[in-house]
């Protein structure tokens, strides 16, 4: 293999390229969506999405089904119309959809995100980054954007399209009115996505910055995800401080809490007392968001510490 088969030439271009944050993010995102686990689980979500879309079409567009749905969703003593029916159906559908897809999102974050920093530690790429004109915080930001972008594909885009479909399938001329009156559904979709992406990202950043071993990261992440869900279930059965603490420890349950709460309000069989008790037992969307942000900050700090303390030579 000949050396200097081509002579060395000085670089005469500019140094005005895009931010290193975007370069690191782009590299991480491409690596994440190229993983087999993302492709397999992504197809699973896609299948689930198509089924839900077809079901939603049937529920909102086939007259016989709509009539039957009216009887299921309408309270006895309230005026009821197609717009209200759509709202209640959509809230239930979103709860069902995200009840499953949030778990898939956690799995995707676990499999695609395990190497997010760990791979750089294992291959010792981190010093190659840090001898460039970038700050540790830019490395952290670039890495922290990867999983939210990946999760936007599976957790955010389906909810947004369901909301739009529901608006488009309203009677002529009422689409904008329905969309405007149901912004809270859009808010729930975004809330759910943010809680999931903050929480999942924070956990994976934290674990991935602690060890170069992907397997260890995945094993601990699985324990946190599924152990947390079990603890949250146990917490719901308790009372007092233990209940309040434990019911918020699951990142997966927290991520669907906005949909759970919205769905609960559509249930015509639940009276105010039952609703009050439900609120006691279910995790609060607000506290769920606070927990997710806290986990994200802890994870980001762990990566920052790692980037600050990485030796360039040994």
């Amino acid at each position: 293999m000949a050396v200097y088969a081509r002579g060395y030439r000085p670089y005469e271009g500019s140094f005005g390229g895009r931010s290193p944050v975007m370069a690191i993010f782009g590299q991480g995102f491409r690596n994440a969506i190229r993983t087999r686990s993302f492709k397999i689980l992504g197809v699973l979500v896609l299948i689930f999405y198509v089924i839900f879309t077809i079901q939603m079409y049937v529920m909102l567009n086939i007259e016989e089904v709509v009539s039957e749905g009216f009887s299921r969703f309408a309270n006895r003593n309230e005026p009821f119309d197609f717009a209200t029916y759509t709202t209640r159906y959509l809230k239930q559908a979103l709860m069902g959809f995200y009840g499953f897809v949030a778990t898939v999102g956690a799995l995707i974050s676990m499999l695609a995100g395990a190497g997010i920093v760990a791979d750089d530690l294992r291959t010792r790429a981190l010093p190659l980054y840090l001898v460039r004109p970038i700050r540790p915080i830019e490395y952290v930001l670039g890495k922290a954007l990867v999983l939210p972008a990946v999760l936007a594909i599976v957790l955010l885009s389906p909810g947004l399209t369901f909301y739009l479909f529901a608006g488009l399938w309203q009677p002529d001329g009422t689409t904008n009115e329905w969309l405007g009156n149901n912004v809270d559904i859009l808010g729930n979709v975004i809330h759910s996505y943010l809680v999931a992406s903050f929480g999942f990202t924070g956990l994976m950043l934290f674990l991935s910055a602690r060890t170069p071993r992907r397997g260890t990261v995945m094993a601990i992440a699985a324990a946190v995800y599924f152990g947390g869900a079990m603890m949250a279930g146990l917490g719901s059965e308790l009372r007092g401080v233990a209940q309040q603490a434990l019911k918020h420890v699951s990142l997966i349950v927290n991520s669907v809490s906005a949909h759970v709460m919205a769905e609960a309000e559509t249930d015509r069989w639940r009276n105010e007392a039952q609703m009050e008790r439900f609120r006691e037992e279910a995790p609060s969307p607000t506290i769920g968001m606070v927990v997710a942000i806290a986990v994200l900050l802890i994870g980001a700090y762990a990566v920052y510490r790692r980037a600050r303390s990485t030796e360039v030579s040994e």
Binding site: P20, N31, R122, I134
Partner: peptide
């Protein structure tokens, strides 16, 4: 020490590190 970028070709790795230096 042995250092390289995970799961990437030589050309992509060097290009990426060039980008980190500010090159378009």
């Amino acid at each position: 020490f042995d250092a390289y970028l995970p799961e990437t070709t030589g050309i992509k790795a060097v290009r990426f590190l060039g980008q980190l230096t500010g090159m378009p």
